[in-house]
């Protein structure tokens, strides 16, 4: 097994809701340790892409492989594959009736049948790494938005996933909370985690990404290293999109 083996492979993915085509003939290959940021206007299909990878959406045609196993909706293997994928959503995905610690340990204990003491020990370790060890017995509603998202990241990490998916995790946060969450993600990237990130935070994308994918209307328009993409985008659509983040007096 080489260090840079392929962890995620998508071939000719086609996804539609009825008449409405979301993703057209989409291809992607992600190597272990890569950090990929997907950007594009709202409705371009980037969130749907993450949901397809996790088997939360059915697909019309094409193939998705995670660690060489095909992702097929309704198959028994899906539960096993999902353990290899950690996903963090926009918001409200912590279980409100459980403490932080219970949120994190539930799946490792019930799905992976790991020992409670060991899981708790690991959970507390991960929590202290994101500066939240003292919150382990708090309930989600007692946490700030930024803290909730960091717990959600820890919850996903505790399953030892091969790849982490982030679906606009800071979009619902107050501006002052955004930084702490992005910082956590940066540290995660530095530790060598494979990550697939959907975000609107451009300077963050530039700092964290190995590769930028630009999607528009369900198609991959441009793919480039971050410096290249942000300084000299090749396509008009990408140029136009990047201009929407700039302001000037007319």
């Amino acid at each position: 097994m080489s260090i840079k083996n392929e962890i995620l492979k998508i071939e000719h993915l086609h996804k539609a809701f009825g008449e409405n085509v979301i993703l057209k003939d989409f291809d992607l290959s992600v190597k272990s340790g890569e950090v990929i940021v997907i950007i594009g206007p709202s409705g371009c299909g980037k969130s749907t892409l993450l949901r397809c990878i996790n088997g939360l959406e059915d697909i019309q045609s094409g193939k998705i492989y995670v660690d060489e196993q095909p992702v097929i909706q309704g198959s028994k293997d899906l539960y096993e594959i999902r353990q290899k994928i950690g996903m963090v959503f926009q918001s409200y995905d912590l279980f409100p009736h459980m403490t932080v610690l219970q949120n994190i340990t539930l799946a490792p204990m019930k799905v992976q049948k790991r020992k409670k003491e060991k899981v708790e020990k690991e959970a507390i370790e991960l929590l202290s790494r994101v500066g939240l060890a003292d919150k382990k017995d708090s309930f989600p509603r007692q946490l700030s938005g930024g803290q909730k998202q960091r717990v959600a990241i820890v919850r996903a990490l505790c399953m030892h996933p091969e790849i982490m998916l982030f679906d606009e995790v800071t979009a619902a946060l107050d501006p002052e909370m955004v930084h702490e969450v992005l910082q956590t993600m940066l540290e995660l990237a530095q530790s060598g985690k494979t990550m697939l990130i959907v975000t609107h935070e451009m300077s963050f994308a530039r700092a964290i990404a190995d590769r930028i994918l630009f999607l528009d209307e369900g198609e991959l328009i441009e793919e480039a290293p971050p410096e290249e993409f942000f300084t000299s985008p090749k396509t008009d659509r990408a140029k136009k999109f990047l201009q929407t983040f700039e302001y000037s007096k007319k």
């Binding site: 939360l56 353990q83 996903m87 799905v111």
Partner: peptide, 22 residues
């Protein structure tokens, strides 16, 4: 909210686990 069962599913839980625990 459906995000509750989705996040539980994405943690690898089976449908009955999602229902009883979440």
């Amino acid at each position: 909210d459906s995000i509750q069962s989705e996040s539980a599913l994405s943690l690898g839980m089976k449908k009955h686990q999602v229902f009883f625990y979440v």
